[in-house]
């Protein structure tokens, strides 16, 4: 099962918690909104990713199961 990170850009208010908790995959852009790396999330980062998602004050970071292509 592979997972990916996605931001709900409407909910995101650029608090920046996610970039602090998961710098391996998330960096802030010049306005503070998260840029998410396209690289896959390895097992070893999954727990960090989960924590980053939970830490977002507006719950704008989503850890989603990769949808199978239809």
């Amino acid at each position: 099962m592979s997972y990916r990170l996605r931001v709900n850009p409407i909910a995101c208010e650029a608090h920046g918690m996610c970039a602090e908790l998961l710098p391996e995959r998330i960096t802030p852009d010049e306005w503070g909104y998260p840029l998410i790396s396209a690289e896959p999330l390895p097992e070893s980062l999954l727990e960090h990713a989960r924590r980053a998602a939970q830490a977002c004050p507006t719950l704008a970071l989503l850890l989603e199961r990769e949808r199978a292509r239809s």
């Binding site: 850009p9 409407i10 995101c12 208010e13 650029a14 852009d29 010049e30 306005w31 503070g32 909104y33």
Partner: peptide, 8 residues
């Protein structure tokens, strides 16, 4: 005006 990257 809802999404940061679009607005900015």
């Amino acid at each position: 005006g809802q999404c940061g990257p679009c607005v900015n």
